[in-house]
Design a protein around this nucleic acid. Structure first.
Lengths: 337, 337
DNA sequence: ATGAAAGCGCTAACAT
DNA sequence: ATGTTAGCGCTTTCAT
């Protein structure tokens, strides 16, 4: 029992393949009697057109790619939901790729997506594969960057005001009387956390707080050295009374390390984290967080993608920057005197 | 500038399309000089074969579908990573669909995946679309169920021993002296949580604990009524001294409700939850959890899928049941006298 | 409005 | 071992 083809439908409803195709695509008028005959046989036999054949002909695959670090990270998970919700509404399917922030994996996926002829790609660029991305764009694939933004790539982007996030987190702590505030971030250069650190430094400057070298704690991407880094930081002559974790991964590692070092939050040290995970209000103490609208970021990215897919022209890159929101809870209390 | 085709490569390397195809697919021997000439032009011009055309011809799309409730749920997120890691290793791409436990969404996705001609589908079946799933299987798409298992579907499955999980959670609480143990689960009939409740009841029986009606708290899928349900349960003449949350969504809602009701864990009421989220050891108190190897479940499912894809025969459905692991922490302490 | 015919880019007989 | 041919299932001219 081979799958039905458009020829079968044509034969069984006494017409030609082209006419069947016409009712399928629905752009050209077809006589009512033929149309209904065709629709009947289609419904009766449960015929489904072969999308591969159609795509080969039309160049439209109705599929998108989504390349992120890790869906298991709630920030990207929510973003993925946003992308998917919009895609589904548009009748598009999304191919998911986790890159683990690894340029080679990213590259491999970019090529796979190109080969799969996706019409658009939402991705959090590692920054490494710009040439390939530009090639994709030249070949007609719509591209939207999320979370990070590579300048000069010429692709649309949807990001958070990361500098602003670092700024409000720091200003909040300073306003509560903290004078020595540590910032825990990656040692590797990564756009997102670097901008957050920029905001942190801007706020420190503004508050006339001298910034010692030791105040930024730079940890490896695998987070294995977080306990050691923190311990060193906290053993300094004048250790920080507050810490900012540059993202949610780092935040968990910091909390785990502080627990291990038997430092109580916020009594021994206050904490503000980036990303507001669902469970943070249940922690004891509840965590003060810089929240970003990750689901909305995903939606917006997908919407940019579709706008671009629909446009004929070479299109103008768009960009949207969402504002961070500081959710004040208990972990950022004033320093103990 | 149109994309290159196999014809272009043939022409430019002085041979025929079929020979180019032969070096591309690599099954039939080709003379060394021709082969290298072809490979040279391919590399030089950065030619990439059109996978759509190839798939149309070969019926192999090298793509899978993954249908789950919600990637944002860490259980499914980790499962998705497991599926994806195996798929990528095999050179397959995965199309992700979130169903929100909604049969209509599930149905829509199943059809989309069929239309996309995926070679296999990993999915957490709602139970509603069996006929369609069977159709897919008949049409030659490999199917593996995860998390739930529809009997009689004839598809392979990878699950947790959910009954066993409910059993060990309950036995643990009973062994610590709890005599009245509540079970918080969905009101809707859902396989996974129903089996966990089965294990709960088996363990209660075994411990000779009478099970009153009120001991199972059945909440709506949206969890809006959790506070009300719990309040009622805790106002009973002999309220439970311990609670089991049937999954991680319910667990969070229960903790939030208990906080609202100003019940301390474990002093006022002990708690054991299903699924061990990364952060549970950082909670205060640290949560006792029934852990399931969700990443491994995903991997195993994908491996079943590929085994099936490679088999020619009508294939025997396989099934794997993982054992739950009880991670004992502080939230399940003995009742206060 | 409809049918015939060509062709999307590839692979797989078939023939040599 | 290689070139020629047909054809995967669809859409889209091009005639009529």
């Amino acid at each position: 029992m081979k799958p039905l083809t458009i020829k079968d439908i044509a034969r069984l409803s006494g017409t030609s393949p082209s006419t069947v195709s016409r009712v399928l695509t629905g752009v050209v008028p077809v006589a009512d009697d033929k149309r209904s005959a065709i629709l009947n046989t289609i419904a009766e036999l449960n015929y489904r057109p072969n999308l591969l054949a159609r795509s080969l002909k039309t160049k439209a695959t109705h599929s998108l790619g989504l390349l992120i670090n890790d869906v298991l990270n709630p920030f990207y998970g929510a973003l993925a939901r946003g992308v998917e919700d919009v895609a589904r509404q548009e009748g598009y399917v999304v191919i998911l790729g986790n890159t683990n922030e690894d340029p080679d994996t990213e590259l491999a996926y970019l090529k796979m997506l190109q080969d799969k002829a996706v019409e658009g790609i939402v991705f959090a660029p590692s920054g490494a594969n710009c040439a390939v991305v530009r090639e994709l764009m030249d070949s007609g694939i719509a591209v939207v960057q999320v979370d990070r933004r590579i300048e000069g790539l010429g692709a649309s982007s949807v990001t958070l005001d990361n500098r602003g996030g670092g700024y409000i987190a720091t200003r909040h702590l300073a306003a509560h009387g903290h004078r020595r505030i540590g910032f825990v971030t990656y040692a590797m250069g990564q756009m997102t956390v670097a901008l957050r650190e920029r905001g942190y430094r801007d706020a420190l400057d503004e508050a006339n707080i001298g910034l010692e070298q030791g105040d930024a704690c730079r940890v490896s991407f695998d987070l294995a050295d977080v306990p050691a880094c923190l311990e060193k930081m906290l053993q300094a002559p004048e250790p920080p009374t507050a810490l900012i974790a540059a993202n949610n991964r780092i935040a968990l590692a910091v909390m785990r390390a502080l627990k291990q070092l038997e430092k109580a939050i916020p009594d021994d040290i206050a904490l503000v984290v980036f990303d507001d995970l669902e469970i943070f209000d249940l922690m004891i103490p509840a965590l003060t967080a810089v929240a970003q609208p990750s689901y909305e970021i995903g939606r917006q990215a997908a919407e940019f993608l579709f706008a671009q897919i629909r446009e004929e022209e070479p299109h103008e890159p768009r960009s949207k920057v969402f504002a961070p929101e500081l959710i004040v809870r208990s972990s950022s209390a004033a320093p103990r005197r």
